[in-house]
């Protein structure tokens, strides 16, 4: 394979394939390719890999329904326009740290409790005032339909002795 010319350079070949070489390098690799079967093979493999992956993406996209994205996003946007509809979302708390916003949340709770409409009470099933723990992360989720609150925490790694 390596005769009187440049050695094979797979990294360079890869950039050649992606058309990311300057004119000089490009010419050099082209010249090398002419009589290097192994680089030719590598290039063909890149091409089939590319085609295969592109084909896969195409199939996945064509088998996916996107129509609800627009509706969902626009609905969220509309909801978001209402300022007091505060939604707690995936709140990551560092280890052993009281979420400083607790106090703030409390204010909103008072707000919610005062606006006690006799008709169905809006807002999530539970409002989190504070949260402390020996945990690595916590997510607060609200189920989309009836707004039930879920707290999901990851404990810090177990020390077996404890």
């Amino acid at each position: 394979m390596k005769k009187n010319h440049d050695k094979c350079n797979p990294l360079l070949l890869n950039r050649f394939f992606d058309q990311e070489l300057g004119p000089d390098e490009h010419a050099r690799v082209s010249k090398h390719l002419r009589d290097c079967p192994s680089c030719q093979k590598a290039l063909r493999e890149n091409q089939s890999l590319s085609a295969l992956v592109a084909d896969n993406f195409e199939k996945t996209v064509s088998g996916t329904r996107f129509d609800h994205i627009e509706d969902n996003v626009l609905e969220r946007i509309r909801n978001d326009r209402i300022p007091w509809q505060i939604k707690l979302k995936s709140l990551f708390a560092p280890k052993r740290l009281l979420i400083p916003a607790g106090a703030l949340v409390a204010i909103f709770i008072l707000f919610f409790s005062l606006v006690k409409s006799p008709v169905p009470v809006s807002g999530p099933s539970a409002i989190i005032n504070s949260f402390t723990g020996d945990i690595s992360s916590v997510i607060i989720i609200e189920t989309p339909e009836s707004r039930q609150t879920i707290i999901w925490f990851n404990e810090t790694a177990d020390n077996k002795a404890g």
């Binding site: 409790s113 009470v121 099933s125 539970a126 949260f131 402390t132 723990g133 945990i135 039930q148 707290i151």
Partner: peptide, 15 residues
């Protein structure tokens, strides 16, 4: 492991 204070709706649930 952790402690939290919540305001739970009457007949509401939290998980």
């Amino acid at each position: 492991i952790f402690q939290t204070v919540i305001q739970l709706l009457n007949r509401g649930t939290i998980t």
